[in-house]
């Protein structure tokens, strides 16, 4: 097993483990958030292994640095307690859903080896770096790149409208 592969296994295990602990942690929302951060960071490591450097950095910056912080922030701000969330109905349906999802994932995993080619394309110079991806963003993907600004504006306005304390 090469160093890269063992790194991958390490981070994959870390990601799955912390993801599970996020979902299964029933007591503590902040701990869930922290688990999520660990997942994110391990995924960033996997991205680096996949030569996606820019994505890896942005993963940490945006997910780790902004999104999860925001989660934690809200948890602290609202001081949410567990009994704020009453037990739900339709437990049977949910159990069924879970079983279905698990089954589907297993099925997908079984299908994967046949569906994917064995060979991998040769990577161009600078693949996944900020120059490569950035150039793509500003040329071929200029439209989505620019359009994202409007999306962010709407999120900005929306978040302010919804969370603003005073109504005037």
């Amino acid at each position: 097993m090469s160093a890269e592969l063992s790194l991958f296994y390490f981070f994959a295990a870390l990601a799955v483990g912390s993801a599970l602990s996020m979902v299964l942690n029933l007591r503590n929302t902040v701990a869930s958030a922290m688990s999520l951060v660990i997942t994110m960071v391990s995924l960033a490591a996997v991205y680096v292994l996949m030569e996606a450097h820019l994505v890896a950095v942005l993963q940490i910056m945006v997910y780790g640095g902004a999104i999860v912080v925001l989660f934690v922030f809200v948890v602290m701000l609202l001081n949410l307690r567990q009994d704020d969330f009453p037990p739900g109905r339709q437990r049977g349906a949910k159990a069924l859903g879970v079983v279905l999802v698990v089954f589907a994932v297993i099925k997908l995993l079984a299908l994967l080896p046949a569906a994917l080619p064995d060979t991998v394309a040769a990577l161009p110079e600078g693949f996944g770096g900020y120059r490569d991806v950035g150039t793509a963003l500003f040329t071929r993907f200029i439209l989505p790149f620019e359009a994202t600004s409007l999306l962010l504006l709407s999120a900005l306005v929306g978040a302010v409208v919804l969370a603003k304390r005073r109504l005037d």
């Binding site: 945006v62 997910y63 999104i67 922030f73 962010l152 999120a155 929306g158 978040a159």
Partner: peptide, 10 residues
């Protein structure tokens, strides 16, 4: 995702 989270938490 960032935008979604901002709105969702709002």
């Amino acid at each position: 995702a960032a935008a979604e989270v901002a709105v969702g938490l709002g």
